[in-house]
């Protein structure tokens, strides 16, 4: 694995689309940085990477990266990615989604992509709120917290992205935060190298809405919050109580959907051959001549 820092301009489109749409201090840039370093570490050529996103702040990420980039519809990124990956298994397909994108409107696609265990890397940037549209409540907004559509406090329970992914069948599930940059980068690198679906939750900050509405403070305060309110999976459970756990929750050896499909193709071709031989035995050697004869008679 290469540990040298990448030349970012090699992976970005600096002459075209900067400055970014993100607020100063936003975690999206950190996630993008981690993705680029992971790609660099694994030495994947840019032509072989497809970066796909949904709608939201994280959805704008592909614009800045010099890969095959696809900015899809809200919540549907994984379904687009499934199609692309099946058509081009040689591509590394990375999907970036937000929490609202992946868990609310795209919740069903998320579950079924996990179930199929498609060979993709799915990164969910979880800032616990809809940032781009103005701080509305999302499926990961904690109970009682304030959002612009939960002005009296959120009465819903938040969903645990990693738990859901592991239960639904993803081969690899991990979580880190945009404060723990090296850790996040390491998890993404592992995920990229995984056969089957890798789901990585990147806990991020939206100080503009989440931080302000819930009086957590500015970007730096939110980074401090990520440092203090999370704990690695390696520490004893008592020390993790009430905190967000970071680390790898699932890492199983699977072949993934692509290989399963290849096996199915082999089976189908074999069956077809068997059928052909059976027909040959039953109908005699020249089936086509017989068919033509039948056709002429009709």
């Amino acid at each position: 694995m290469k540990r040298t820092a990448p030349m970012f301009q090699d992976y970005l489109r600096p002459d075209k689309r900067f400055p970014s749409v993100w607020c100063p201090g936003c975690g999206n840039g950190v996630v993008l940085g981690c993705i680029l370093r992971a790609i660099h570490a694994l030495d994947i050529p840019r032509d072989k990477v497809a970066l796909i996103s949904g709608i939201g702040c994280s959805g704008r990420m592909p614009v800045y990266a010099d890969f095959n980039t696809l900015h899809t519809t809200h919540g549907r990124a994984l379904a687009f990615a499934t199609g692309l990956k099946l058509a081009r298994p040689d591509l590394y397909v990375i999907v970036v989604m937000g929490d609202g994108d992946a868990m609310a409107i795209g919740g069903n696609h998320f579950i079924h992509t996990c179930r199929r265990n498609v060979n993709l890397t799915a990164i969910v940037v979880n800032n616990r709120i809809y940032g781009m549209t103005g701080g509305q409540c999302s499926p990961t907004t904690p109970s009682d917290l304030i959002a612009s559509t939960a002005t009296y406090g959120n009465i819903d329970q938040p969903i645990d992205i990693c738990h859901l992914a592991a239960l639904a069948g993803a081969a690899f599930v991990g979580r880190s935060t945009v404060y723990h940059v090296r850790e996040l980068e390491k998890i993404i690198t592992k995920g990229l190298d995984k056969k089957g679906l890798a789901v990585i939750e990147a806990v991020s900050n939206c100080h503009t809405y989440y931080g302000r509405l819930n009086k957590i403070g500015r970007a730096t305060d939110m980074f401090k919050w990520m440092k203090e309110e999370t704990a690695p999976i390696t520490v004893v459970p008592e020390k993790r109580k009430g905190k967000i756990t970071r680390g790898i929750f699932m890492d199983k050896d699977t072949v993934g959907f692509i290989q399963h499909y290849e096996q199915l193709v082999e089976k189908a071709i074999k069956n077809m051959e068997m059928l052909r031989q059976w027909k040959k035995k039953r109908l005699g050697p020249d089936i086509n001549a017989k068919k033509a004869q039948v056709a002429n008679n009709t």
Binding site: F80, A81, T82, L86, A87, R88
Partner: peptide, 11 residues
Amino acid sequence: ASIIGASLGGA
């Protein structure tokens, strides 16, 4: 969505 993704992949 899947057929659009696949089409972009050349299918």
